[in-house]
Design a protein around this nucleic acid. Sequence first.
DNA 1: AGATTGACTGCAT
DNA 2: CATGCAGCCAATC
Length: 104
Amino acid sequence: MGKSSSRSLYQHIYAIVREIPPGKVSTYGRIAQLAGACTPRLVGYALHALPEGSDVPWHRIINSRGRVSLQEPGYGGLQRVMLESEGIVFTENGMVELDLYGWP
DNA sequence: AGATTGACTGCAT
DNA sequence: CATGCAGCCAATC
């Protein structure tokens, strides 16, 4: 097995998230599937443990309903701003249309 | 070592 | 489309 399995699942998740191109978003479940993690929860865990200033575009990860799952309002607002700055348009309900921005 | 929790999801209402 | 319920895996206490 490659050393990649030696590294934490987190590192694997981060690698996938880094592959998301600007202007696109993905869901926890999608990342979990790509990373080989059977559970979207781990993706949320990994991103929560993510340090500030990392090169991982955590803001491009939203839940399957197309909404920002962040519980901390401060970061939630930040996430929305980050996405909007990348050209993503939110609906009046504060949702993202996964059909348009979903990645892959 | 066992219980608790969590940036979730899918299905039903 | 929103809300409620149960299932899942790993990290934390």
